[in-house]
Amino acid sequence: MFWFLMAAMVAVVAAVALAVLGSGDGSGGPVTGGLPEAEPDRAHDPLPVDRPLTAADVVAVRLPLAARGYRMAETDDVLDRLAAELAERDARIAALEAELGRVPGPPPLPGPPPPAGPAV
């Protein structure tokens, strides 16, 4: 009786293993060609591309985590330092422009250089 139960248990385990492994995706269903593609994890608050970065942009960035992700404390320290230096830079630029009496305007748009004049 012992050998019959042992053989029955081995047969059941083998049948279940073959059914799961034979499905292709491990779900036990029909073969679908493997696992579905995982959607990549992206930052929820991407940095703006239509204007210069500000300290508030850096403070608002939240990087996604992964199984082999980044060291959160160190990365947050770097981002905090970068935000502080951006804020300090912006304040210094505003102070220098105020000393010169300039009113800051929009940044120049990138484009082709102006055409050169005729050679004389």
Rank of each mutant, 00 (worst) to 15 (best):
Pro106Asp: 12
Ala11Tyr: 01
Ala38Asn: 02
Ala14Asp: 07
Ala94Ser: 10
Thr32Val: 15
Val58His: 01
Pro106Trp: 08
Met9Pro: 00
Leu18Lys: 14
Ala43His: 04
Pro106Gln: 14
Gly69Ile: 01
Ile93Gly: 00
Ala119Met: 11
Met1Trp: 07
Pro118Asn: 01
Arg42Trp: 07
Gly29Leu: 07
Glu85Gln: 10
Arg71Glu: 10
Ala116Met: 12
Leu65Phe: 06
Asp90Tyr: 01
Met1Leu: 09
Ala17Thr: 15
Pro40Trp: 00
Gly69Tyr: 01
Ala119Glu: 15
Ala83His: 08
Val31Arg: 09
Leu18Arg: 15
Asp77Gln: 10
Pro115Gln: 00
Ala66Gly: 15
Leu86Lys: 03
Ala8Met: 14
Arg89Leu: 13
Thr75Leu: 11
Val13Phe: 11
Val12Asp: 13
Arg62Pro: 00
Arg89Gln: 10
Ala119Leu: 12
Glu97Asp: 12
Met9Trp: 11
Ala14Val: 11
Ala98Met: 02
Pro52Phe: 00
Val13Leu: 15
Pro113Cys: 00
Leu79Phe: 11
Gly24Tyr: 03
Phe4Gln: 13
Gly105Glu: 09
Ala8Asp: 05
Glu39Asp: 10
Met72Trp: 13
Thr54Ala: 09
Tyr70Gly: 08
Gly28Lys: 02
Ala60Phe: 05
Gly24Cys: 05
Pro115Thr: 02
Arg68His: 14
Pro118Trp: 01
Ala38His: 04
Pro104Glu: 06
Arg51Glu: 01
Val16Ser: 07
Gly22Glu: 04
Gly24Asp: 14
Gly34Met: 01
Leu65Lys: 15
Gly34Lys: 01
Pro110Trp: 03
Pro118Gly: 02
Leu21Asp: 09
Pro48Ser: 03
Ala60Asp: 10
Val103His: 05
Arg92Thr: 12
Arg62Leu: 07
Val58Phe: 00
Leu63Trp: 10
Arg62Asn: 09
Ala73Asp: 12
Pro112Cys: 03
Asp45Pro: 00
Asp25Trp: 02
Pro106Tyr: 06
Asp80Gly: 08
Pro40Cys: 01
Thr54Val: 03
Leu82Phe: 00
Pro107Met: 09
Arg42Phe: 07
Val78Phe: 14
Glu74His: 15
Val120Ile: 05
Leu109Phe: 06
Leu100Trp: 05
Asp57Pro: 08
Ala15Gln: 05
Ala98Arg: 14
Arg68Gln: 15
Arg102Ser: 05
Ala17Pro: 02
Arg68Leu: 15
Met72Asn: 09
Met9Ile: 14
Trp3Val: 14
Ala87Arg: 13
Ala116Cys: 03
Gly26Cys: 02
Arg81Phe: 08
Val58Asp: 01
Ala8Phe: 10
Pro40Glu: 01
Gly29Glu: 03
Arg92Val: 08
Ala38Ile: 07
Pro46Lys: 09
Phe2Lys: 13
Leu21Val: 10
Pro107Arg: 12
Gly33Val: 05
Ala43Phe: 04
Glu85Ala: 06
Ala14Ile: 04
Gly28Pro: 00
Val61Pro: 00
Ala43Leu: 03
Ala94Asp: 15
Val16Tyr: 09
Asp76Glu: 13
Pro110Glu: 09
Leu79Asp: 02
Gly26His: 03
Val78Ala: 12
Gly69Met: 03
Pro114Tyr: 01
Ala94Trp: 07
Gly33Phe: 09
Asp41Gly: 03
Ala87Gln: 14
Glu88Ile: 04
Val12Tyr: 11
Leu5His: 14
Asp25Ala: 03
Ala87Lys: 10
